[in-house]
Every structure is written in structure tokens, then in C-alpha cells.
Amino acid sequence: MNQLTFNKIALGKKLIDFIYYEAIIEKSENESKLIAVNVLANGKILTKIKTNISLSEYELGHLDRLIIEIISSFISDSENNSSTCSKQESFYATKPSNKQKEARNHVAQDLFNQFNL
């Protein structure tokens, strides 16, 4: 397995004023997995958030968003220095009927208008 580190300091990006993060991604033949997110300040690791999230369903452009969610979740849910975050989708959605599909389309239209999307 290769281990890649996307270091946001190197990319000149940061999370907030003085906090940076880096994603530790393991690549195998079949899939890439986000195995940890390191939160850094002044080049030192403040905390390591261990994860086990398959990246196959995430586009790389959304990786930042996923990482920010993990860090927010860590901040709000944990009092420890290290935490294991699992993917939050521990649910399944029932397939909508045709009537429900139509209603969903209308609601989506409302949301597009409401949020100026």
C-alpha cells in the first residue's frame, strides 16, 4: 500500500487563522481510503483523527469538504485527543415512488429558488 500525504501547508491552504490540516490517504489497487486527518498548528500535529473512509464515492474536489466535516465532528463530539470517525451514512433511504419523485422535484425547485442556487 502506498501512503500519500496531502499537506495543505505545502499547498498554502489553511482551515482557519492558524490551523492547518493534512489528509493521510492509503491507496490500494481497488480503492483509496482516508485513514487519518492531522490537525496542525505551527507545523506541529495538535491531534490525529483516525478515520476509515473509502474515497471511491467522493470526488477529489469534495475531499476538502469531507475533511472539514470530520474536523467539525471531532471538535463537537469528542473531548479526547484522538478519536475514530466513521462514515456517518449509517442509514438507508427508501426508494421514492413516482408521486414522491414528483414532490421531491417540486421541493428541489423551491430550494433552488429559496437559496438562489
Binding site: S90, F91, Y92, A93, T94, P96, K99, Q100, A103, R104, V107
Partner: peptide, 8 residues
């Protein structure tokens, strides 16, 4: 009308 039905 039910538009989202999620079971955990």
C-alpha cells in the same frame, strides 16, 4: 407527501 424516508 413523504419526500425522504431514512431508516438507521
Amino acid at each position: 407527501t413523504l419526500i425522504l424516508d431514512l431508516t438507521f
